[in-house]
Design a protein around this nucleic acid. Structure first.
Lengths: 156, 156
DNA sequence: GTGAGTGCAAAGCCTTTGCAACCAC
DNA sequence: GTGGTTGCAAAGGCTTTGCACTCAC
């Protein structure tokens, strides 16, 4: 069961307060934009543009500072799809998922899996490693691109 | 069975030739440094410093250009541990592995696993996704750091 | 000999920072 | 009222690029 937008908003407003962070207009607006698309991935520039539509007064530096803050408070997660810029996603409870990244069209599909959870537990034992997080990404070709690619499959 | 340094060198020299790339002094030296530590992870700056010891004439721009070239030729792989700079590792045959990253001491441990190979195959079927590569990283605390951390475990 | 490859320095991109003004508490 | 936040612009890292020179083929 996923949390509603209202629940998320309140939860994160409380979290900010709990850490003595002021609930400024800018932080509210930025959070609102992030919550409005709970499953999207975004970078600073993309977020900046969306926030601008809501409140053109917000500066890019504030976006960066807020992203850092939200990461610290675990309101969002930093991803690492691309090394040229940093990207982020909202930290939705129980949304722990993995990514399928299409090398052709760039589409990123999310999936969850219990096999991996089990695997992780085994791994902790074999390597005496206390796992707290994981980043699991599979690269390849999505259904659509696979079939297009199939036309020249004899190539390789 | 892992390839010897000589085998790797020859293989990659041939690969450069096959792509009409000149075998310059700089490329040879850079390749030699990379092969000399086949399991290390490095960024441009680190590679630059090591190459400098061998040949102080090499410029940093050449390092960057060569890293791009070697990635295209699949002589090395680009990693994505950190988003502030790009890191790389030698592409050793059958070395497909995953990473355990310690959040405290930063140590990166490699491991291989057949469960994941199987999992990948299942995944391809359920999602109609043609997987060609994966990046799998687990974050947590290594054995040593876990025990140190244990002292303040009640803290949370 | 000739064009790919190089070194240098300048430019580029994304991100961070210094500082005065501002506003949430 | 006051210190945390902000916007702006300047500075900061890392990486790429323009250009004349060089060297592998």
């Amino acid at each position: 069961m996923e949390e509603s937008r209202e629940e998320l908003r309140e939860k994160f407003h409380r979290r900010l307060a709990a850490h003595d962070c002021k609930l400024t207009r800018q932080r509210k607006d930025i959070l609102e934009v992030i919550i409005s698309e709970p499953h999207s991935h975004f970078n600073a520039e993309e977020l900046y543009e969306k926030v601008q539509q809501m409140n053109p007064e917000v500066g890019l530096a504030t976006i960066y500072r807020t992203l850092d803050l939200f990461c610290d408070l675990e309101i969002i997660h930093r991803l690492d799809f691309d090394t040229s810029y940093k990207s982020y996603e909202l930290n939705v409870e129980d949304q722990h998922h993995h990514h399928l990244i299409c090398l052709q069209c760039g589409t990123i599909t999310e999936f969850k899996d219990s096999v991996l959870e089990k695997f992780e537990q085994d791994l902790e034992k074999t390597h005496n490693f206390d796992i707290v997080d994981h980043h699991i990404k599979f690269y390849g070709y999505c259904e659509e691109c696979s079939s297009n690619k199939g036309e020249s499959k004899n190539g390789k």
